[in-house]
Write a protein that binds this DNA or RNA. Structure first.
Lengths: 333, 333
DNA sequence: CTGAAAGCGCTTACAG
DNA sequence: CTGAAAGCGCTTACAG
């Protein structure tokens, strides 16, 4: 009737509940015989540890939050988020820790998130650092000593206080722009990301580094990481400089928008204008032609985020990890 | 240094910890003076209740799972899921209960989900009933007495054992097919959903009911709810019966695929062939022309799911709720 | 290696 | 209306 407790297991196994707890927690101060007896008793009673009791006794929650500081809309439209949520959930599950998705898009939600997290529901938080929108919350979380690791280099002055793991944005941009140059492109424009995002900064810098003295501010337009934003940016670019023959967009969504706008303007991609993106997410293979882009290693980013967070929770110092990207050549450039 | 407990609040307020607990839980057996003193003490100490202690004492978790039995890929591509996850998370947060997203696509994940849930991490489960893929898990959950409510009528023989809330699929289909008839369409085909899904069954039935004696099996093709599947189904339809002048797709994604395939085949939408969908999700406004479709009231579905689940958790019987749909006329039909 | 016991921080009959 | 106390189910020094 009632769910079995550690005590029930103990009587069946003929030991004390302390011993049951020890085998449960993999301590090795237990004799082989006792261990065998306890394991059998666990099976025969159908015992499962009560997480609330364990959490109370150990004062930890065995759970972390994945915090979304963007508007909720964005989340489910952004394949990067999806990959990260999927990847980290998996990596966490492998360690038997659960994860809660927390949406904290507006101030009210952020307040709620803050009280939820600081109440001790989670041991740490995973963050996708896309803009500065979540900064106030991050600051408060930090003040409350909550372990945090972000995907993407922190941009709000949090360097060294939170863990981070990011793709090598600058180098990824360098490699793709070099590729465009090698293909003989002469007027290479870029659609940059928002300047308050790590990708918005570093990818532009990579572009600029390759072009060096040939860098022309007129060929830089800022986008908002959306398909529509990419299309709009492209039109601006075309108005400024009709002779562009290549565009490097700071993410795949904008690259898709650029392709659509280009085609609407009667330009062939890649014949007239080559287009390259960044991310290699679902957008990359949904456009015609498919995108030449820079791949972010999301599975590895996810597992590293989890590893670093666990270290932080364990009391270690925050580390900042950068992972290599790779160039994926498809039809668009 | 150490986080304040109920006891700290009690000494500051000059009462016993039992009284603090009573004001915390909104019991009214507490004098106004005591209440005021406690509330002040809570503020001055910065007290927050420890959820693990509370959960242990009350033996409940104040948390529910949103279970995804589809492959993980599907989730983040499906705007219906996104709307449901968003809506239920919100409704749950309003009641101060948290939610965990659990992906249980393959057998290994289902086993893990089972043990997570039956360990008592959550008080109940929210489910999006899209196919029969999750049936074995649902069955085991039911055996373990876990309260469940699904979106969509249960199809695996779970009627009456789990709560459910769904849009009125049959009536929604009736209204849109009647609309097509009223527009003067004569050869109305349908791309049905998979026959092991509630929508796959009821929407087809609504279509059939309107056509009655004019129903022609040759005009029915089964799709898989994806854009590509919709396009493929449309091509099959066109091969069978080039004279179709309208298509009712069982969801928006397939409707978009149908439009694309139609256009690729040189047919104008809606002039040559009218196309209607079902859902009114993001797909509906991303196609050209935009979709005429049946709106599912996702916000209401979400909040009803939560309400019914809370009832179930509270010991009441499972209820099955059907919510009305509405026809949304845009450019495609 | 193992048991008895204290403690984690709450809730809730039970008296009063 | 309120306090003292038991209980929720674990973990973990502390002895032995």
């Amino acid at each position: 009737m009632k769910r079995p407790t550690i005590r029930d297991v103990a009587v069946v196994a003929g030991v004390s509940s302390g011993t049951v707890s020890r085998v449960l927690n993999g301590k090795n101060w237990v004799s082989p015989e006792a261990r065998v007896a306890v394991e059998a008793a666990i099976r025969s009673t159908g015992y499962r540890v009560n997480p609330h009791a364990r959490n109370l006794a150990m004062s930890k929650s065995n759970s972390v939050a994945f915090l979304l500081t963007e508007t909720q809309q964005v989340l489910f439209e952004d394949p990067n988020f999806a990959a990260l949520v999927r990847g980290t959930t998996q990596a966490l599950a492998d360690r038997d820790v659960s994860s809660v998705l927390i949406m904290a898009g507006d101030a009210a939600e952020q307040a709620r998130a803050m009280s939820y997290i600081s109440a001790g529901h989670v041991d740490g938080v995973l963050l996708a650092f896309t803009s500065s929108g979540g900064n106030p919350l991050v600051r408060r979380l930090l003040d409350a000593q909550v372990p945090i690791v972000s995907c993407g280099m922190p941009v709000g002055g949090f360097e060294g206080r939170i863990g981070s793991v990011s793709a090598d944005d600058a180098h990824g941009a360098v490699s793709v722009v070099q590729y465009l140059v090698a293909q003989g492109r002469r007027r290479i424009a870029t659609i940059a990301g928002p300047p308050d995002t790590p990708g918005g900064i570093a990818r532009l810098e990579g572009y600029r580094r390759v072009l060096a003295s040939r860098f022309d501010p007129a060929l830089v337009v800022e986008g908002d990481y959306t398909v529509a934003g990419g299309a709009a940016a492209l039109r601006t670019l075309l108005a400024r400089e009709p002779a562009i023959d290549a565009v490097f967009a700071a993410n795949d969504a904008m690259a898709v928008g650029a392709i659509e706008a280009l085609q609407a303007a009667g330009r062939q991609v890649p014949t007239d204008v080559a287009v390259a993106g960044f991310d290699d997410n679902d957008f990359a293979t949904r456009s015609t032609p498919e995108l030449t882009t820079v791949r972010q290693p999301f599975p590895r980013i996810s597992s590293e985020m989890v590893r670093v967070l666990m270290e932080l929770i364990g009391g270690e110092e925050p580390s900042a990890i950068t992972l290599p990207t790779s160039l994926v050549v498809r039809g668009s450039a």
